[in-house]
């Protein structure tokens, strides 16, 4: 049996499979969050004018799973996910808190007025320092916060329905049971 010629062929196939997988399934711009399964960092922020009483770390430990969405009026991708958040709010699926990242109060308020407010509370991170404490490196990002205020997961980029169903819904169910 002279099957030795298969060695280079199989080597090539193995490398091709690995590269194919990496090319289409791994996203190099997605850096896994260091804060998953850790407590949310300490912070206390004022609300976007006219949108709730402000946001602090203690507001996130609510006894149920909630979302913390990092958004900004200058962020184009935020508009992509915004209708979905409005839907979640209408159906009362999950409470969403808004962290307004490096924005101006007026621009943020105008943006929420124009596109609707899906957030239960909002906080303005004018200098982006709270964002850095959360390990935010781009907008939008959405944190899933557990009943006791620990960070369960982070979704980088616009949150879509398939992603919500796959990554967040199981966490919501897990907390109920």
């Amino acid at each position: 049996m002279q099957l030795r010629f298969l060695v280079p062929v199989l080597t090539f196939v193995a490398i091709a499979v690995v590269m194919w997988y990496a090319l289409f399934n791994l996203n190099p711009t997605e850096i896994p969050s260091e804060l998953v399964s850790k407590a949310a960092p300490e912070f206390s922020l004022e609300a976007v004018p006219g949108y709730g009483p402000g946001l602090a770390k203690s507001d996130l430990a609510t006894g149920k799973v909630v979302l913390l969405n990092v958004f900004a009026s200058w962020c184009v991708a935020c508009m992509v996910e915004h209708p979905f958040f409005m839907e979640l709010r209408e159906q009362d699926t999950v409470d969403i808190y808004g962290l307004n990242y490096k924005d101006t109060p007026t621009a943020a308020a105008e943006w929420l007025q124009r596109h609707g407010n899906p957030y239960k509370r909002t906080g303005m991170d004018l200098k982006g320092r709270v964002g850095i404490d959360f390990g935010v490196y781009g907008v939008p990002e959405t944190f899933v916060i557990g009943p006791d205020g620990t960070i369960l997961d982070k979704v980088i980029g616009p949150l879509t329905r398939p992603m919500f169903d796959m990554r967040i819904r199981p966490l919501l169910k897990g907390a109920e049971s």
């Binding site: 850096i31 896994p32 969050s33 260091e34 804060l35 850095i132 404490d133 390990g135 490196y137």
Partner: peptide, 8 residues
């Protein structure tokens, strides 16, 4: 920085 962003 590592506490926030990891070894990355």
């Amino acid at each position: 920085l590592v506490r926030r962003y990891g070894d990355w």
